[in-house]
Design a protein around this nucleic acid. Sequence first.
RNA 1: GCGCCUGUAGCUCAAUUGGAUAGAGCAUCAGCCUCCGAAGCUGAGGGUUGUGAGUUCGAUUCUCGCCAGGCGCACCA
Length: 580
Amino acid sequence: MSADPASVPLLSDVLADWLRAAFRRALPPAADDYASIGVVSTTNPEFGDYQCNAAMALAKALKQPPRQLAQAVLDQAGPHPAVERTALAGPGFINITVRADAIIDLAQAQGRDAALGVPPVGRGQTVVLDYSSPNVAKPMHIGHIRSTIIGGALDRLHRALGYRVVADNHIGDWGTQFGILIRGYRQFVDEAALREQPVEELERLYVKSYEQSQADPAWLDACRQELVKLQSGDPENLRLWEQFVQWSMAEFERVYRRLGVSFDLVRGESHYNVKLPGVLATLEQHGLVKESEGAQVVFLEEEKLPVCIVRKRDGGFNYATTDLATVASRVEEFHPAKIVYVTDERQQLHFRQLFAICRRLGITTALDHVWFGLMRLPEGTFSTRQGNVIRLERLLDEAEQRALAIVQAASPTMDPATQRDVARAVGIGAVKYADLSQNPQTQITFSWDKALALDGNSGPYLQYAYARIASVQDKYAERYPGQDPGAFPLQLTEPIERVLALKVTQFPEAILRAAELYRPSVVADYLYDVAQTYSSFYQNVPFLKAPDGVRESRVRLCGLVARVLRTGLDLLGIETPDRI
RNA sequence: GCGCCUGUAGCUCAAUUGGAUAGAGCAUCAGCCUCCGAAGCUGAGGGUUGUGAGUUCGAUUCUCGCCAGGCGCACCA
């Protein structure tokens, strides 16, 4: 077993290096040294396996005919051990067909590598990943799932690439809502309901108190009083607050366990309270703070951004200040290469302001905001006050229930405990995949049927493909006891085997690209493509019944596909049971 | 009013960041289980990529205008 993943090169890198060298020989020196020259998979199999489009782009800059330029590059390229043939096509495409034994060598090397060829590009670097971050005293509803699921996937992807990830759940446990909540608690609490479902009761209290505060100025004032008491350390209000946080955390933990998400840190906003005056002082030292309409603000005219309030007129701090304190604290404690926030689209402006201020403070850590579109219902956005929220736990229950019905129908002989276990993995997998398989930056209109899809491009489709392979491997072991297909060479006799093996070797590229773009959907798309190709292979090419040697090669290829599916789905946080 | 985002098959989404004939799933229709798992496979129909211009060898992708929708824009987070 090779322990060094660097021993498995990426085919696209190898080919790009080869052509880049040829470009350098064929063309005058360029400022960027042709660093951007790369190859991509062809759009159509008739063009070969990879294509390079750089000649046409460069032709424009160099004022040469693109075909002539591409030809010059090909003349300079010479033969390459991995390349079967090249072709010049169209206005200047360079098409590359890879040698089958190069694919075989790569796939076999990948199979020997524990990381399946995924390079540890993040080794030695730390990433702080801020995701999920729900608010205390509100049940998690389906609007919260995206940050949690997408963030969780980005977390795993970065770890797979060798980054040290600090997953930080920045709980919303502080702020003006607690005045409203405490006042509501004192007046309206239903102790029985609180014992039964504490978070739902807290939400009810908040909504009721909020409504009253809108109608009744005296009530609003009373809420403010409670907040002031809390912030000044009143023991009774602090005790209540701590209790609210505890109840909420218990509910969050329950959901996280079901979703298979865990954090390295759970630090609420309250954690940074003591640092807020220091943040303001630092801003003042940098001459960034001005007074405006009674508040302390930072003007961001150079960045063409609206003014950012860092201290309210009443002397209280707000979220911008808290987030600044959080950045400073994370930089100091973890020395991260980057800090990444996963939130919904509504916070874009806030983070642009935050990052601008950080830059003015001389913070050089890369700061990225990964935003995703809001989850909506067909009739509009969610609103606690409209009472149209769908609780996350209900979604997960429903998912498992629907999956169970199908498992029971499809596998009646499976024992009930296993059926439930499989239904859990399939149901949760379906929900996660429905979210992860699409570009985060589109808004999702929630529908039960879509979130819980069990066929077509869905989580269960991938799980099914995996389970079929597991079954094939079992059958093989039964019929050929003690024989290891991995000891036989891969051979790519059918065209679809070649396609499948090539796709398998592209697994690392999908992981790299997904992490770089912060888009788990790249992995989902890739895996679906692999599973589709596999299913076609499975249906149309016999393998247990194939001749000696060919059979072993095919079972071995099945094994590689299985590892790609299992590893890839694991990175998306989706389980792969052997039987579904 | 200003800013950010979105508009692709009846529906839900892709399209390797400017590449070749725009691809999948769902739905519809037609086939495939005495054969390795039919949650599957094979095939068919379905498109003026919101719209009008521009940039160039080449535009779903870039620029500008317009139309439609979403979100945000001073003391909530």
